[in-house]
Simulated scan of single mutants.
Amino acid sequence: MTDAPRTDDTRTDPAFVATTRTFYDAVAEDYHARFRTVLDDAPLDRALMGAFAELVGPEGQVADLGCGPGRVTAHLASLGLRVFGLDLSASMLAIARRENPGLRFEQGSMLELDLPDGALAGAVSWYSSIHTPWERLPDLFGEVRRVLAPGGHLLLGFQVGDEPNHHDRPWGHPVALDFERRRPEPMAELLEHAGFTVLSRTVRITEGTTVARVPQAFLIARR
């Protein structure tokens, strides 16, 4: 895995991966400005991360997959976890490194993790599976399971719903992307089929300053 933006190999990426990277490269600074303090006003989210941190413990390595500008990575680190962030977007990673100089951030795809089997004690996908098509989620969850050690934990967050939330030209940038909303029950079934045991399903109404006025779902699963 490299910190430098990928060049030739991006041409072999699935179209949805390339589209996601392009979108977040374009909106990174505006996205960071809008959401940089969102966790400050989300006590239930912080509580779930605290439970995840307690399950994982301070010894093993944790990956924040799809870390964006690194706010969740930094919060997990503040809970005592040995955590690094991974993201597709070089622009998002530049912000993450700027804002969190003591933490490690790497560029890569959740579908092809440059990690040995069983390397992680924990993984977090905090609203980062929402750009992966439904038919590719088994691949994603299988890859996460591969890099988790037996007994390792996954924290998965996403918006609840049946139709995607389409963002077109956010903050005036000439890009567009679908943010998939999903139901917790079929997501839990996919995790079980991938070899996880789902320990917790939490659905909450929107709290704080979150933009989308839809319920939010959080699953904690163990390999």
Rank of each mutant, 00 (worst) to 15 (best):
T2Q: 14
R6I: 01
D8W: 00
D8L: 07
D9A: 10
T10M: 02
T10Q: 08
R11K: 12
D13M: 09
D13H: 12
V17E: 11
T19C: 04
T19I: 06
T20R: 01
R21K: 12
R21V: 03
Y24L: 01
Y24Q: 04
D25C: 02
A26L: 03
A26E: 11
Y31I: 06
H32C: 09
H32M: 02
H32Y: 14
A33V: 12
R34W: 05
R34K: 13
R36M: 07
T37A: 13
V38S: 13
L39I: 08
D40M: 03
D41W: 06
A42Y: 11
L44G: 13
D45C: 09
D45K: 11
L48W: 06
M49N: 03
A51N: 12
E59I: 00
G60N: 11
G60T: 14
Q61M: 14
R71G: 12
T73H: 02
A74E: 13
H75R: 12
G80D: 05
L88M: 08
L88R: 08
L88G: 08
A96M: 07
A96D: 06
R97P: 09
R98W: 05
N100I: 10
N100C: 07
P101K: 08
P101E: 02
Q107Y: 02
G108Q: 05
G108E: 08
S109H: 03
S109R: 09
L115V: 07
D117Q: 10
L120F: 01
A121R: 11
G122D: 04
A123D: 03
S125R: 00
Y127R: 04
S128I: 02
P133Y: 01
D139N: 04
G142L: 03
R145E: 07
A149F: 01
G151R: 03
L155N: 03
F158T: 06
F158I: 01
V160P: 11
V160H: 05
G161H: 04
N165S: 13
N165F: 15
H167N: 09
P170H: 08
P170S: 09
P174Q: 08
V175G: 02
L177S: 09
E180Y: 14
M187P: 02
M187R: 02
M187E: 12
M187K: 00
L191Q: 06
G195Q: 10
G195H: 06
F196R: 09
T197Q: 12
L199Y: 02
L199N: 10
R201E: 15
I205V: 14
T210K: 13
T210E: 15
T210I: 13
V211M: 13
A212Q: 14
A212F: 15
R213C: 09
R213Q: 15
R213H: 14
P215F: 01
Q216E: 14
A217N: 05
L219R: 08
I220C: 12
A221C: 12
R222L: 00
R222H: 06
